[in-house]
Nucleic acid binder design. Structure first.
Lengths: 222, 222
DNA sequence: ATCAATGTGAATAATCTGTGAATTTCCCGG
DNA sequence: CCGGGAAATTCACAGATTATTCACATTGAT
């Protein structure tokens, strides 16, 4: 278990780190949002603990940036009196928040709560999702475009389902190859492009949900 | 979707309510067990979230009382250290437990899980099902095609029944082998194909219900 | 304008499924 | 313990579908 601690005050970082290490976590530290984003993208942390008020890049923006490529659980630290409403900007993907001054014991409890949810229950992905006129039934392996069943190839289903499961986050070609094709695929990157093309054709007007991220890969944007 | 939030601490109620409303639920609040019972009996909630330690009437007693007239799914909130009571709780018909301090996101996930589970499990699997001219009597282990009894082999029955029980769900060959043949079967995947073939023959015109999912497996599509 | 990244159509290679038949296993009565 | 038939499993092959590669067109950023 590895956690990333982000705060501009070294004192706070130290306190959190000491408790976390006492609980048996490995820790990394970042002093501002920019650093945090870089580190979070480079390493797969189990939890990120991040202050809101920070120089260079604040916690909200850092969170937003990290969420583009990772789904790491994030716990925000907020000073009492800080805009409380913003804490409920869950569209940012914040998993929990703790108000400063906090008891380290409570923070540890929250870390456990957040990470348990991760490992234990592989998030109960709903079996059926609808985006406008695009219905996706993963359990039944069916896709309906404006009510009409789409007839897609196996790879198209696999690719679409993976994109949808990880919607709104950027996926590189390599990541897609590894997750959809399998770790043992050693072919061309561009194979992904061809399948994206075919998938787009199958989705008709709803091809718009599949966004190209130039220089990066693709994502399903709902 | 309407949920009832029961806790004597207004702060906790507020946090849960804000998360829940963000997720699109309607919410009501109760500050103690007595209130909760009154409200739960008057209104059909989809889920009730209730603290254990409360003035006037504790969570257990409230749960017991509500259960006398309603089957609403109940998620209990318990302070750390009340672990022992957990076992006792499930006997009362508690659907899930969340330990305080909890991650609101986790709580939301549990609400979803519980409400889905409830609605799905509500209808017990009938033992006899008819699809057009295909009658399937699982209890009697008989199948009628256009009124005439089909004479099938044991594996055909097992396979058909499993497919029907899981109709409209995509099933891989591996899954079928594990569930129908048993975890200790170490033979060839394609064995499934052969049995599907024989099953299709036995079903005559109703073979149409057994759909091949290329690259995946099969499913019974009603 | 230029260069790299992406979209696309077509050719080829690889994979998958249905099926008939051969082989093995299982089950029972003798 | 054995034989015989039913059932289960494996096997091989054809036909159809799908995946991959490649070349070229198009797009987008600087």
């Amino acid at each position: 278990m590895k956690i990333l601690i982000v705060d501009d005050e070294a004192n706070i970082r130290r306190v959190v780190r000491e408790y976390a290490e006492f609980e048996g976590y490995e820790t990394d530290e970042a002093g501002d949002g920019m650093e945090a984003v870089t580190m979070a993208k480079a390493t797969d942390y189990d939890v990120i603990i991040m202050d809101i008020m920070m120089p260079r890049l604040d916690g909200y923006s850092a969170c937003k940036e990290i969420r583009k490529t990772k789904n790491t659980p994030i716990i925000m630290l907020s000073a009492r009196g800080e805009e409380y409403d913003k804490l409920f900007g869950f569209e940012l993907g914040i998993d929990d928040y703790v108000v400063k001054p906090f008891s380290p014991k409570e923070l540890m409890a929250r870390i456990k709560a957040v990470s348990i949810r991760r490992s234990a229950a592989q998030q109960p992905m709903p079996e059926r999702i609808t985006f406008e006129g695009l219905e996706i039934d993963m359990a039944g392996r069916e896709v309906y475009v404006n009510g009409q069943k789409a007839n897609m190839t196996p790879k198209e289903y696999d690719l679409l389902f993976y994109l949808v499961k990880n919607r709104n986050i950027a996926l590189t070609r390599d990541k897609l190859l590894e997750e959809v094709w399998g770790y043992d695929f050693f072919g061309d990157d561009r194979t992904v492009d061809t399948h994206i093309k075919m998938l787009r054709n199958s989705l008709g007007e709803y091809r718009k949900f599949i966004v190209t991220l130039r220089g990066m890969g693709y994502k399903f944007e709902a």
